[in-house]
Design a protein around this nucleic acid. Structure first.
Length: 125
DNA sequence: TCAGTGACTCCCC
DNA sequence: CGGGGAGCCACTG
């Protein structure tokens, strides 16, 4: 159970500067595809404390979920500083900025074969 | 233990 | 494209 959180933190630490992952994507890579809300909860509680690049995790719509907890402006500022652009709706183009780890990286994280396969398809391998 | 919670997602108008 | 609603599930007190 503790395993999930550790995986989540490990994955988030690997997100390249200027790229983003969605909560659901992090949950999937960590082995529990439908635990996206947990990822948000973990970041809220320990994002700053653990010095994670918390700003690089956004929701599946390409929007920032942190406005609810007063971190929206800061998150947007940090992402813009990394070169990420927001369209006029405050939306980030996931096609352009979403990051998917390499097959080698996923193997190292023990991502299941099925998940890795789906991700490969998505990347057009 | 166990119910409550929520930085989510998906589906349906 | 936007809002409402119903699942989801690791974490917490």
């Amino acid at each position: 159970m503790r395993d999930f959180s550790e995986k989540v933190f490990t994955i988030i630490r690997k997100i390249p500067k200027g790229k983003v992952l969605t909560y659901g994507q992090v949950a999937t890579l960590a082995g529990v595809p439908r635990a996206s809300r947990i990822v948000g909860g973990l970041l809220f509680q320990q994002g700053l404390e653990k010095r994670l690049p918390w700003q690089r995790v956004i929701n599946a719509q390409g929007k920032l979920s942190t406005y609810r907890v007063g971190m929206g402006t800061e998150q947007k500022r940090l992402l813009q500083a990394e070169g990420i652009r927001f369209n006029r709706g405050g939306v980030i183009d996931l096609k352009q900025y979403q990051w998917w780890p390499s097959a080698k990286q996923m193997h190292h994280w023990e991502v299941s074969e099925e998940t890795a396969f789906r991700i490969s398809e998505r990347l057009g391998f």
